[in-house]
Design a protein around this nucleic acid. Structure first.
Lengths: 260, 260
DNA sequence: GTAATAGTGTCTGTGAGACATTATGGC
DNA sequence: GCCATAATGTCTCACAGACACTATTAC
């Protein structure tokens, strides 16, 4: 808030540099066992015809979260199931036209939330749902997406992977009713690993409030249906297999490592 | 980045609302077994005579991290040992004078980094090093600090508590050379719990690259001296005792719980 | 029928937590 | 000598991971 600069009675507009503040969304979903994200094709330079994350400017009287929800609704026509602030990107050169600080949000949703967006019903833009795996190979200039969106996307994927370990957010990728194997396939898609079906089932059902059975349970071999429970955190956590080839770790940490 | 609003060739300044972008620092240190933070007393309204987090505006050609480092240096006269972006606070009403979006940073350092600041050597401001425990009781209007800085501080403390679990950052609170009991006292101060000395020692020394012994031993008992090792992450993590009365959990998660 | 797969039984290895014991230095 | 405390030895319990087995559904 810069209280330490002495200003008598409110700020003089000449005292602070004006910035544009934008919000960018990393929208993650799991479809057919693949982790996917939503991208928008740019029309103009810079980065004309490149894909970018959906985003927009924050309005003068709008909270940051509110802006993120608005932008999600504009693309999909439905309310956002889960959203969290990821981090803020503000390199001076990140947009060659002007100084834009972008607050990135992570949004998790099921593929059904994206049906309008993926059919282009909500806008005349070229909106696409793209597998993350298709974006891992950088383009000729070393990147795939416009601006610093490769970095934002990578940070978001790592955040989502970490959050599945110690929260119950995995269910936000699924419809209201689902089976344990459905949930396992979400974990496998997000983490990019195969999990042991039996142990996964036991673990998930053993975490109080993670999933609640719907309808009657019969004996062995029968697939049961569940809904989300009330718990937000998973204790103890469900950890990713050690030393596995997933993504970039916390960029704040000095050295690389593949875990959390 | 708001690529979806069609703009021909760079932004027209009339197209986006101007914001002020500030950086606020939550500076945490451990002194005499207490977790403490640095506050600055405000001179003017709003919140005259209240304490606030140190902060300042981001300059036109400055990265966000750079601004945070600059502000830390302005207060203390030394380089910041560890810094990470916490999150961004942008409620429209958070500063009654104008729209300010503030990117908060978490800074961890040893008490020796704050000697200049705490003696007022670097500024004519009223800079103080205050125990976190003294800020837990809200004032007459429901808060202790200016603006939304109570919330920022609480988020920062929770982040620091969580990070001690799965990173080796505990050593950033200590001088170059330290003993295992010194490190344990850091954990106890940050988490606000008593830890089992024997098990803590075994765990810390067993994590590859967390601490490296530095030859001679002094002090009581067979106390060994150590330096930081090269590892940034701790696997498996060193978890806080379950169900313990520390701080607010991840505010993104729907319901409260006391763990991560 | 056969194949695929959900869920259970059970064993094993690892590690956290608790407690006792030994070693070392301050007083 | 006596006390405080660091570090180790050891036991127990919880849980992850592996494997085998059974039950059920899809074909």
């Amino acid at each position: 808030m810069s209280e330490q600069e002495d200003r008598p009675e409110g700020y003089d507009p000449g005292d602070y540099p004006p910035f544009a503040v934008a919000v960018d969304l990393v929208l993650l979903t799991v479809r057919d066992g693949e982790l996917e994200t939503v991208l928008v094709r740019r029309d103009e330079d810079p980065f004309a015809r490149r894909f970018a994350l959906p985003g927009g400017f924050v309005r003068p009287e709008e909270d940051l979260d509110e802006a993120a929800r608005r932008i999600f609704f504009d693309k999909t026509g439905v309310a956002v199931p889960y959203l969290e602030q990821l981090r803020t990107y503000g390199r001076p050169s990140r947009d060659p036209r002007m100084r834009v600080v972008s607050v990135a949000y992570l949004v998790l949703c099921g593929p059904e939330h994206l049906s309008a967006a993926s059919r282009g019903l909500r806008s005349d833009e070229d909106v696409r749902v793209v597998p993350i795996s298709a974006l891992s190979v950088p383009g000729p200039d070393g990147r795939q997406l416009a601006f610093d969106h490769d970095e934002i996307l990578a940070d978001a994927v790592e955040r989502a992977r970490a959050k599945l370990e110690y929260t119950t957010l995995g269910t936000t990728f699924l419809p209201e009713e689902f089976s344990i194997p459905d949930l396992r396939r979400v974990y496998e898609a997000v983490w990019g690993v195969a999990l042991h079906a039996g142990n996964f089932s036991r673990k998930v059902r053993g975490v109080e409030g993670f999933v609640v059975p719907v309808g009657r349970s019969t004996g062995r071999g029968r697939v049961q249906r569940f809904r989300r429970g009330g718990a937000a955190l998973m204790v103890p956590p469900l950890m990713r297999p050690y030393g596995e080839p997933s993504a970039a770790p916390d960029p704040e940490l000095g050295q690389a490592a593949s875990r959390r």
